[in-house]
Design a protein around this nucleic acid. Structure first.
Lengths: 302, 302
DNA sequence: TGAATACATGAATTTGATGCATCTAACTGG
DNA sequence: CCAGTTAGATGCATCAAATTCATGTATTCA
């Protein structure tokens, strides 16, 4: 017994729609003899009479009618599939898997993603934060498509684009003794409770760039996952935190917070978006980078 | 942009399932180079990267994963379709459209159809009673597949098989003056109310074979569609009817009815099943005839 | 590093799909 | 009812695509 092909269904559908071989042949971009041959071969291959020849027109048998209903069910799915494939081909459709290696950037990312979803209605966005072999590893192993990180690693098969600069500042609540200070020294933190995200301290700039060079540790460290809770804690004097300045400013309207420069010159940071070189031709991905890189006022004000 | 074929989906599915071209090639009854070429051609034709080559194995891209899910959705429908097609080919599946030209046979038909449906679980039965061009016309025009009729018409393209004989008798109720009579003459009907099915009198044997030859007409005629009501009417003395003897006997336990022979010799009838010669190879159809023709005791008793 | 394994490639072959010319059967109008 | 017209069938020639064989190249693992 032969194999039922999409082609067969198309022939069955068109012959039934047109009621004549010659007309159906036109719609199928075939000559009449070609269709005649095809029709014969289909019946032979499938081993079933599909048409009854009445006079000089073809009438569907029961098996044929059943096949026609099958065709009407399956063929539209093929057409739909081809449309979608074309969207994939044109880079209009896909899932953008974003990896985050920068906790506070989550806020910023939301401000980028929501207008982006408007612009690319057929692209889904997925955000991940845990990677077994680090963000770069996730990027290289195709686990994610874009990496949001403050630590670019220049490899030939990866491209990094800076998207924004910010200053890392100490946040203190209204009643805190450092409230109002212009800047602080590492020593001034030795008696403080430091609230951080739950990541190893070697991935926290406050340690690598500020405390450890001075050989200082905070009196206590608390780990909290979400930025909101972290800032509520700070506002109530349960500790101090280190966050991007823009983030603090954003929250300042809700809680009474104060941002203090870390050291005389402050700690300047830069966030990069990394992507694989091989993904250069994916439009929705390139557009995300471009979109994220252009400064957007709303991002700060929303 | 090329056309998405069933073949493509099968390749995508098998390569994904096996994880290797060589293994997938075996399952697809192909050599490895053939599959390799096919894979390349598919990607070219569809214009989408479907696999990423990692080392020496193929990993699905996003478009590929989407195609895989499509394959898992569509391919089973093809397999199912082929199974069904084979059933059609073997005459195991179909719809048996039975045409009835014999009103009282409906009862008999039910007794044949219900065990038949057990034997042919994949065959549907459809019963029709109205035909624009008569039962024979319906058979010839493929409107029905089997015709139940007392009037076979021997044509080369049709086959008729007698399935049962019966006697047409007059039925009267318990209080009727003819109750108990052995047989009657046409004259005895001239003062009676005759209840018949609503068909032209030239299709009623009581007229063509009994009354008309004697030039007699009943006092009144009433038309009733269903046998049940007809017999209730007869039982209550609202008239007399002409029906097969076995049918009267079947109802005799419920109503007090009496069957009287029409004329000295009675009217013998034979019911035939007609079918098209071209349907000879349809097993479920041939089996229906065979099944209906063999005398079944249960048919009378149920 | 070398053997084993797996995918890729190119040329040759086979298969099958298509078109052309032609035939036959069916419908149409006089 | 017959001739003309139209639609489907058929045989053969042709061309394209699928498949194979032989071989090359890259990757993996000991």
């Amino acid at each position: 017994m032969g194999i039922l092909e999409r082609n067969h269904l198309m022939i069955i559908r068109e012959v039934a729609r047109e009621g004549s071989l010659t007309a159906a042949a036109v719609r199928l971009n075939l000559t009449q003899p070609a269709l005649s041959h095809a029709v014969r071969k289909i019946e032979f291959q499938l081993g079933v009479k599909i048409w009854r020849r009445e006079g000089r027109s073809l009438v569907l048998t029961q098996a044929g009618q059943w096949l026609l209903s099958l065709a009407n069910r399956l063929l539209p799915q093929f057409s739909l599939a081809e449309e979608r494939l074309e969207q994939f081909a044109n880079g209009e459709r896909g899932t953008l898997r974003i990896g985050m290696e920068c906790h506070p950037c989550y806020q910023w990312l939301l401000n980028v993603v929501s207008p982006y979803l408007e612009r690319w209605p057929k692209v889904d966005v997925d955000v991940r934060q845990k990677f077994q072999f680090g963000g770069i590893g996730a990027l290289l192993s195709n686990e994610i498509d874009i990496l949001v990180t403050p630590d670019p690693l220049y490899k030939p098969e990866l491209n990094f684009t800076p998207v924004f600069d910010y200053e890392l500042v100490l946040v203190v609540g209204s009643g805190h003794k450092l409230y109002g200070a212009k800047h602080i020294t590492p020593e001034q933190l030795s008696s403080e409770t430091l609230i951080t995200y739950p990541v190893p301290s070697e991935r926290l700039d406050i340690y690598t760039q500020f405390l450890q060079p001075a050989g200082i540790a905070p009196r206590q460290q608390k780990q909290i996952e979400t930025t909101d809770i972290m800032l509520v804690m700070v506002a109530h004097g349960r500790g101090v935190a280190v966050l991007p300045r823009w983030l603090v400013e954003e929250y300042a309207s809700r809680y009474d917070l104060h941002a203090i420069r870390l050291g005389k010159n402050g700690i300047a940071k830069q966030i990069f978006l990394g992507r694989r070189e091989t993904d250069d031709d994916i439009q929705y991905l390139a557009d995300f980078i471009k979109f994220a890189a252009e400064p957007r006022e709303e991002a700060q004000n929303s």
